[in-house]
Simulated scan of single mutants.
Amino acid sequence: MYATLEVQADQLTVTLSGEHRDGSHTVLHDVAGPAGGTSPAAANVLHFDGPATEAALAAADFAYRERIAPAFRAAPGAVRSLVLFDPVRRATVVVSTAVDAAALEALGQAIGGQELLPGEDVALLPGPDRVSFHPVAQVVEPS
């Protein structure tokens, strides 16, 4: 699956598609939270600009699968989390949606307060280059 992101008037539109288009990202992870299936009202977007090394990509994938996704699945009000990869720039974007801004804030605190797992190397897990918060205009699913 592929995704394109568009921000207009500070509203975020995520378009998911079964086919690659110019400027689209590959969806690496698509995780539903406890409010999955609910229309999201708020999103945070974390940009990891890259270019990331293979070791950093592997470390981020492990951290997402083993720590972050389980926390997302347990977070009240969490709707959906997408990890998107741009293979040209070797950059990653994480889009997390929730029923409201308060749920996003609580999610961020829960994830930010986590201890690293044994074997994780903080040097391979830099924080995002940019973080932005948006009201969600729409999520367009593939037809």
Rank of each mutant, 00 (worst) to 15 (best):
M1L: 13
M1A: 14
A3F: 12
A3W: 07
A3Q: 09
A3Y: 09
L5Q: 08
L5D: 07
E6N: 15
V7Y: 13
A9F: 09
A9G: 12
D10R: 15
Q11G: 10
L12Y: 07
L12W: 08
L12A: 01
V14K: 01
L16C: 04
S17Q: 02
S17I: 04
S17L: 04
G18D: 13
H20S: 15
R21G: 15
D22F: 09
D22L: 09
G23P: 08
G23V: 06
S24P: 08
S24E: 03
H25I: 00
H25N: 09
T26Q: 08
V27D: 01
L28S: 05
H29P: 00
V31I: 14
V31R: 06
A32P: 04
A32K: 01
P34H: 03
P34R: 05
A35K: 01
A35L: 00
G36E: 06
G37W: 02
G37R: 02
T38N: 05
T38A: 13
S39L: 06
S39A: 14
P40L: 00
A41R: 12
A42Y: 10
L46G: 07
H47G: 00
P51W: 01
A52H: 12
A52Y: 10
A52F: 11
T53F: 06
A55E: 15
A55R: 11
A59Y: 12
A59S: 12
D61H: 07
D61C: 00
F62P: 01
A63Q: 12
Y64S: 04
Y64L: 09
R65L: 12
R67K: 13
R67W: 05
A71Y: 02
A71N: 04
A74V: 01
A78D: 00
A78I: 00
A78V: 01
R80G: 01
S81N: 07
S81T: 10
L82A: 03
V83W: 03
L84H: 03
F85G: 03
D86Q: 08
P87F: 07
P87H: 09
P87D: 10
R90F: 11
R90V: 10
V95P: 02
V95K: 02
S96Q: 07
T97E: 01
V99A: 07
D100S: 06
D100P: 05
A101D: 14
A102P: 06
A102V: 06
A102H: 04
A103Y: 09
L104V: 11
L104N: 09
L104H: 09
E105S: 10
E105D: 14
E105Q: 12
G108M: 06
Q109E: 15
Q109K: 13
Q109M: 13
A110K: 13
I111D: 04
G112C: 09
G113W: 07
Q114I: 05
Q114E: 15
E115H: 14
E115Q: 15
P118A: 07
P118Y: 14
G119N: 14
G119E: 15
E120H: 03
E120P: 10
D121Q: 13
V122S: 15
A123M: 09
L125Q: 11
G127I: 08
D129C: 05
V131M: 13
S132N: 04
P135W: 05
Q138T: 10
V139L: 13
V140K: 08
E141D: 11
P142F: 02
P142A: 02
P142S: 03
